[in-house]
């Protein structure tokens, strides 16, 4: 795999007061990459996502998206350039239905939200695309349910569906399977498989079973630093990783 570099992170650092939550992280995602980012709780994985997507500013480092420096761009601007993330804790519009969420995502992606006098129900091509997205996540039966009254697992699936609906170039999934019933987690992998192969996906995940099914490469983060990276097999065999991460989790089980 050596496609064009889509996301290039260099020397990214950030501290909260005295706490160094990201120190000198460098990472490149190329077209076609399926990379997993793992690390113990509090390692700084979500913070890394927030830095890359522009939710919080870094104290040092640069972020390039498809060759373009986006370090100073606001979050929404990066989204429009194709850098899409899902949230670790489902972050949705509680009173809106599942269908309305997907409609909004697709309309926003196509920049058709400033139509004041068109009916959402009659926007060309929208209903079909939304139906496909609903189907892919098995959310068809709850399409008209307000999200606030949806079981958490289905909220998580909708969160993924929203990210997928944005047709990302770089997709970052922050623990997509957290809270999803085990039998449904395959849906998430299936949805990623259906995406164009030339996009880059970075998945943060604790479920090692899912990680090994998904990832071609793995990056390990501990205490805000990149510990090591390599193929799935290399990481699984790495004694250092076993000690800080796999080992401690295996003991916990």
């Amino acid at each position: 795999m050596s496609g064009a570099a889509l996301l290039e992170v260099e020397g990214l650092s950030r501290n909260f007061g005295g706490l160094q939550v990201a120190s000198d992280i460098s990472l490149t995602l190329r077209a076609g990459d399926r990379c997993a980012l793992i690390g113990p709780n509090g390692a700084g994985k979500t913070t890394f996502v927030n830095l890359v997507t522009g939710v919080i500013p870094p104290s040092a480092g640069t972020i390039r998206l498809a060759g373009r420096d986006v370090t100073g761009l606001p979050a929404a601007e990066r989204v429009r350039l194709g850098l899409i993330r899902s949230f670790q804790v489902a972050r949705l519009f509680r009173s809106m239905t599942v269908r309305e969420h997907l409609e909004l995502a697709v309309l926003q992606r196509d920049r058709r939200t400033f139509r004041l006098f068109a009916s959402v129900a009659r926007v060309a091509g929208l209903a079909g695309e939304v139906a496909e997205l609903l189907d892919a996540m098995g959310l068809g039966a709850v399409a008209s349910t307000a999200v606030g009254s949806l079981p958490y697992g289905q909220q998580r699936l909708l969160e993924i569906a929203l990210a997928v609906a944005m047709k990302p170039k770089v997709l970052i999934l922050d623990e997509p399977a957290a809270g999803v019933p085990h039998a449904e987690s395959q849906r998430i992998l299936d949805a990623i498989d259906r995406l164009p192969t030339d996009l880059a996906v970075l998945m943060i995940e604790h479920d090692m079973d899912l990680v090994f099914r998904f990832a071609s490469s793995i990056v390990v983060l501990a205490q805000g630093r990149l510990l090591c990276s390599g193929t799935a097999a290399e990481i699984a065999a790495d004694p250092q990783v076993r000690e800080v991460y796999l080992g401690s989790r295996a003991d916990a089980r």
Partner: peptide, 29 residues
């Protein structure tokens, strides 16, 4: 006219902003 507007793509986006502006920017709005 108002009913038309609140049921339009624009009305949908505004309801999104009302509930969670940050989530709307995460969708690129």
């Amino acid at each position: 006219v108002a009913r038309r507007i609140v049921r339009s793509p624009f009305g949908l986006a505004c309801r999104g902003v009302k509930e969670d502006p940050l989530r709307v920017s995460a969708l690129g709005g």
